[in-house]
Design a protein around this nucleic acid. Sequence first.
DNA 1: TATGAATGAGCCTTCATTCAT
DNA 2: AATGAATGAAGGCTCATTCAT
Lengths: 231, 231, 231, 231
Amino acid sequence: MAKALKKNAAAEATAPCGRFAAGEDPAKRGQIIDGAKRVFLRMGFDAASMNDITREAGVSKGTIYVYFKDKEDLFAAMVEAEREAFLAALRIILAKDDDMETSLYTFGIRFLERLTDEKSITAMRMVLGVRERMPDLCSRFFRGPQNLRTVLHEYLVRQVAKGSLVIDDIDLATGQYLDLASGSFFKFRLFGTMPEPPSQEEMVRVIRGAIRVFMAAYSRHDESVIARAPL
Amino acid sequence: MAKALKKNAAAEATAPCGRFAAGEDPAKRGQIIDGAKRVFLRMGFDAASMNDITREAGVSKGTIYVYFKDKEDLFAAMVEAEREAFLAALRIILAKDDDMETSLYTFGIRFLERLTDEKSITAMRMVLGVRERMPDLCSRFFRGPQNLRTVLHEYLVRQVAKGSLVIDDIDLATGQYLDLASGSFFKFRLFGTMPEPPSQEEMVRVIRGAIRVFMAAYSRHDESVIARAPL
Amino acid sequence: MAKALKKNAAAEATAPCGRFAAGEDPAKRGQIIDGAKRVFLRMGFDAASMNDITREAGVSKGTIYVYFKDKEDLFAAMVEAEREAFLAALRIILAKDDDMETSLYTFGIRFLERLTDEKSITAMRMVLGVRERMPDLCSRFFRGPQNLRTVLHEYLVRQVAKGSLVIDDIDLATGQYLDLASGSFFKFRLFGTMPEPPSQEEMVRVIRGAIRVFMAAYSRHDESVIARAPL
Amino acid sequence: MAKALKKNAAAEATAPCGRFAAGEDPAKRGQIIDGAKRVFLRMGFDAASMNDITREAGVSKGTIYVYFKDKEDLFAAMVEAEREAFLAALRIILAKDDDMETSLYTFGIRFLERLTDEKSITAMRMVLGVRERMPDLCSRFFRGPQNLRTVLHEYLVRQVAKGSLVIDDIDLATGQYLDLASGSFFKFRLFGTMPEPPSQEEMVRVIRGAIRVFMAAYSRHDESVIARAPL
DNA sequence: TATGAATGAGCCTTCATTCAT
DNA sequence: AATGAATGAAGGCTCATTCAT
């Protein structure tokens, strides 16, 4: 019955064009990944059993093995999905045509929220924990081709092109803003030293500080230009 | 036979007072932890089997279970031992009566070496990876009562008492020196972005820089005071 | 697309009279059996998966289950078909109006070729291997109502009726020719002692010998008797 | 409880010298092989599950995997044991100092009994059935280094050396006696054409016939020569 | 009618833990 | 006190079969 409901939901969501090929229905894929995510986050990679995931995802064991080669593949897919979702949200912010400080601010806040969120932190710990067995996963996760750094980098490139920013080494500047924005929160959260995500105020303070430093270094200095102009 | 040898060696090493109570012989305890460390580092917590450890430690299964409640307990003990060893080395440095810059330098280098060493990094990843199941272990490891921070903190307290340093917030200063000393190396190593530990030169550069900043902020400025005084 | 082609081909081959009832189209049935045969011979009964057969036959899983009750039923049908094909070839030879020695010779050679052929040998091993679970299949295969023995038996009956042979116990004679013709080859092949089928020469030698013995025992000796009589 | 009994029995049978190394206790090994044999014979290789064997052998799953690498290894061991038992019985007969005809007779009868016995026949079918996956097993079984042929061959060599027999090609003669002794029974039994082993009388008849032919061909004809000589 | 995605029982195997020796 | 053989629950994964489309 739970099954039937889920199936219908999936069908409605994706329905019009009939049936998907085996292992190709994105709704079902998502359903599996969702279940897997819950179980993996709760138990860790090894302690999570495929049976748990089966139960949590509301899908049969065989189906999981149609969509994913094995447990590692499923885990990798979940991690990838997580990263994708993380990025998607931030990409949108930087795509908007807001003025730069607003963009950097919203980006910073969302980034920090996400970065220090219990689920993200747990996921990162897990990825680090299985690194010995799945080194590729770890690399892709922390410096994959489509990562956060790239997203911000592209934004800064656009701003420089527009003349809003004056940056020599954009790579460096990208890293700097991210480091400034994450503050020490990330490390504290990762190691469990800080048991809760920072409060909204703490985050605002850090992000404001980050922007101040960043803009001081890289914004166009019209006035100073003017100031120097007289001569 | 290898076993027999080990046994004798252990017995001799600790012998004088006769026989130890069950699970109390520190040599045997160490022998088990050593074997366990090798296996855990090589395979990760879950992938390591008690049989592997048995073999590597040259001790029987039953004996392990006399000394340690279960696999988790053994793992925790190994982690604890590792942290202890880490600290012991650094404690000695700060206990010596060297002049302060030398002490901070040697401390910094040893700290950074150890921090970025493949084995330490692997151990930290492991501890993070099993955090969901063994949260206490993780906490104890990263902020246990007898941690690095304390060691350095006590040293700084002594220096302040002697008047060699002028520090308002010693807690803060402790963290600052550690952060300065670890640089970005730690994060890069942890995430695998930096596949090898930094070279000796890189470390020297970072530690020198850390000391410069640290001393600029906190060393007694007698001369300058005097220098400024005359006016 | 490969699938579509096959379907069309089948449809055309059998088309005229419209559509077949479910599980009744003999072309499709043959197509399934053919695919199954290839897979079963390659993998053995248990190791062959219905998916493999599906793929090899170019027919969907459901369709197979319309034509055959289950895997065992499909296997039995394939075995039966194989036996049928085996017999059909030999029946034709004995139906021709060639002189008897020619018939027996050709029959013998074809029989021996087939009997020692890798595919037949593999099939027999398989049938023997699943006997515990499918005892009827084995019986039908080795002494089914329409077997080799019957075919040759009927032929000999006809020859006796024509007066070409003089045989008391035709059952016995039937068995004897088959035993003589198979020689020791069959056992050796079945047990793998003889890794390749016998060469053409070896077969010719054995069959010639078989015919010599058989004819010596059962051919009409009228003329020779008469011939000798006069003296 | 069954377990306890079995254990005690095993203990008594092997007891005096304490404990066996893992996977080395021959009583336990035998116990496992016995259980496995019953299950394998009943179900065939693939259809037999390790759980069935576990239950039938009265031993835990883990223990089986200490004694045998995997299912195939267990099966091979059972087949080997079966062959060994088969040979041992016959070896004894030929080792006795009976007169030759008696030896050959007893050997023949025992051989035929065993060869046509339901269990042997089933085992052979199984070995043939898994040949594709375990070709070595099949070879070893049917022409292994220590097989029946060798045993009889050695006996004949001894008789020739003693002058009791006059044989040119002992290899050939060995095969001939075995073929004569097995008659057609083996094939019929293997294929299930003969549902029961032959009766004692049938066996006696076949073996008597075999000995008559064999002795006619190979026994020393001294006396008869002498007997004939006088004339 | 034909399809093939989904099912889930059941497979082989591993391994933390116990307990008789 | 130390040993290590035995245990058996639980693991990941396959595949014959069903049934909605």
